[in-house]
Design a protein around this nucleic acid. Structure first.
Lengths: 224, 224
DNA sequence: TCATATTTGCGTAATAATAACGCAAAATAA
DNA sequence: TTATTTTGCGTTATTATTACGCAAATATGA
């Protein structure tokens, strides 16, 4: 049997800074959709695991090493790519702001973080893929502790609040949110206070992955 | 670029009868894993959408026309298949018992429904795929009305209860379940009573997909 | 025939979770 | 020094969930 289907991976990588959720896009160097913005991605090598392919392409094209990565969905519509039958396994990733050092390389002439509210028009069906990823993130943040992957390892409670409000796109009662989140007993309150401009200085917190997994194993579920 | 990756689809199809959740398996006609039980599936044709490929293979190998189908996950480990690099997009499906007419064909020497509690050992990584599908079904039944796809279009409330208990693997309070389910206002109570052996005769119910979608659009969520 | 078991259908009370809001402490800015 | 802002901890009202009670309608078996 001779099959003319090519397999690729694409990555929707989210970042967060200053109450803005952003996504990593590249400007394409080659045709089709030359100079158009697109998701980073590329062909899978013959003996390469899919996740490795995503990580490699992401690093080659943008310089980003990803912290959190999970499979999103496989897009296989026969006419999604003018070059022929290209099936793409899309991944969904999150990076911490401190890893924000991006540089265009190989297939890209430019790399940029775009505010998810101010997106350019995208190549192929990438707008559709991005939309799925956004939905996934919005849903996931409520039942898995993925939000911490978007903050520095030490963070202020206020930042966590704002992150949730930004991603969920609605106001959250500050006091109820704090009670619920601290009640999960997966955050360590550090002995460091930070004074950010005006207002009472706030404590730094840290997410304890170990404690979360221990609780998960005991059947205790994360829910916000 | 020359890529030696082949793309296939596999299907995990669930059925339900007599308080048992079952899954559709085929006995392989050819090597490798000849005469071993496996998930139905096969190669995707060059210009064929993925879903169509699943439906086609399923019909060819088992005679089943699927009611409900959704993508599960893409399994792409480089050594998951001894024939070489085979990436499989796995789908997850549900069929109504009245469509229970299965016949082995093409690549299969036998087709059978297996109780999910009495599974044979499976070819390739199919045990792993099946496990993912079961997890998905168990999670999904609580936040989307997929359970009805496993019952006749007209069903007794008791059957629905038993279906949920079987899939969730735990007891549910009959009265609270009824209150919650009827409170969603997506079931039509028919003017037909059925007497099944002993006990008070029960009413037939019917799931209203239209009403469910209307409510969904209004932001009302299904949750059990 | 008639008590008994079984399944349905509808109800209420106790408990837990969520949502809504108050207010003092600790800092900055005017 | 007073107003403003942000944090941190609290209470109360509302809603949802859980745990049961019990009568109606049928089949079964003495």
């Amino acid at each position: 049997m001779k099959q003319a289907i090519k397999l690729m991976v694409d990555a929707v990588v989210f970042g967060y800074q200053d109450r803005k959720l952003s996504v990593l896009l590249i400007k394409r160097k080659y045709k089709p959709f030359q100079d158009s913005w697109a998701l980073p991605g590329g062909y899978v090598k013959d003996k390469e695991p899919l996740e490795e392919a995503v990580e490699r392409e992401l690093y080659e094209e943008t310089g980003v090493k990803i912290d959190y990565l999970e499979q999103l969905y496989t897009f296989g519509n026969p006419d999604r790519d003018p070059r022929g039958r290209l099936v793409s396994v899309a991944y969904f990733g999150l990076v911490r702001p401190d890893k924000f050092s991006i540089t265009a390389d190989t297939d890209a002439v430019d790399v940029e973080w775009f505010d998810t509210n101010k997106l350019p028009s995208l190549a192929f069906d990438h707008a559709h893929i991005l939309k799925s990823a956004l939905q996934r993130l919005r849903a996931k943040i409520s039942y898995e502790p993925v939000g911490f992957e978007l903050l520095d390892s030490k963070f202020l409670f206020g930042e966590l609040e704002k992150l949730y409000m930004t991603i969920l796109g609605r106001d959250i009662d500050r006091r109820n949110f704090r009670k619920k989140m601290l009640g999960l007993d997966i955050l360590d309150q550090l002995d460091e206070k930070v004074s950010e401009g005006r207002g009472r200085p706030a404590n730094l917190f840290q997410f304890s992955k170990e404690r979360y997994f221990r609780k998960k194993k005991e059947g205790i579920v994360f829910e916000i």
